[in-house]
């Protein structure tokens, strides 16, 4: 690509993000949105200040651990359920219905059940896992149905046994959809963990946000939100690269 073409392609997006940051800074600096909107530099300075690292680090450690655990658990359950519907096809309709119902149920509605079933520290993991489960289940089931008819015909004429067809055809065919699901599950897993913390966790970024909101600790509030969204965004970007690689290879 020539410099000109590159400028044409990447110029506006970079400009857009820069303008966004500038607007954030100016609104904060001139108090256009009142006292509760700090300039971007103030939030970054708060994040950079070593004095806050212990507080933010402890909260982030707790939340990110919950996110990781929820993400992995949800992925495992989603994949397991999808495999189950593949193995026992008559079970499909019922599991579809249950998963769709759980998905349509706002996380808050499940909170009382979780509060009864588990400790408050595991609720973020559970809500995160539940939200991830839905996405991965949908991605995996639609992926397992993405096998092309011509490929299925080929494997039948080659005399493939079901297990062989599964490993050599259905699973690779499902990978692109699955990779997309894994990417989309990132923000969802953060959302689940944060909402989960609002139901009485004793530590974490979500809790920090709420306490900062109630106590007018404006830089802390924005710093916690920025830290959460940036981490989610970076992981999303990384999985986006992974998704692109899988799509190139398996489609």
């Amino acid at each position: 690509m020539t410099l000109r073409a590159r400028l044409h392609r990447y110029g506006p997006p970079v400009l857009g993000v820069l303008l966004f940051c500038l607007a954030w800074q100016l609104i904060g600096a001139y108090r256009l949105a009142g006292m509760t909107w700090p300039p971007l530099t103030a939030v970054l300075a708060y994040l950079a200040d070593p004095a806050h690292h212990q507080l933010l680090g402890r909260a982030a450690g707790t939340t990110f651990a919950a996110v990781a655990l929820g993400y992995l658990t949800g992925t495992g359950i989603g994949l397991g359920l999808a495999l189950l519907t593949r193995l026992v096809r008559p079970a499909r309709a019922g599991i579809d219905r249950l998963v769709a119902l759980v998905h349509a149920t706002p996380a808050i509605a499940l909170a009382p059940v979780f509060m009864i079933l588990m400790s408050r520290e595991t609720i973020p993991v559970a809500i995160s896992a539940l939200a991830v489960t839905y996405l991965i289940y949908v991605a995996a089931t639609s992926g397992l149905e993405a096998t092309k008819a011509a490929h299925a015909d080929l494997f039948r004429t080659l005399g493939a046994r079901p297990l062989t067809a599964f490993w050599r055809l259905e699973l690779p065919s499902a990978l692109p959809a699955l990779a997309s699901g894994l990417k989309l599950a990132v923000p969802v897993s953060f959302m689940g963990a944060i909402v989960g913390e609002w139901f009485g966790a004793s530590r974490g970024l979500g809790l920090l946000m709420i306490s900062a909101m109630q106590n007018f600790q404006i830089p802390l509030l924005w710093a916690a939100v920025l830290l959460t969204t940036l981490t989610s965004l970076i992981l999303y970007g990384l999985l986006g690269l992974f998704e692109a690689a899988v799509h190139r290879r398996f489609r």
């Binding site: 990132v186 923000p187 946000m209 709420i210 924005w222 969204t229």
Partner: peptide, 12 residues
């Protein structure tokens, strides 16, 4: 692609 719920405290 960001967990929007995190913005609720800020907006509030």
């Amino acid at each position: 692609s960001v967990p929007v719920v995190a913005l609720i405290p800020i907006l509030a």
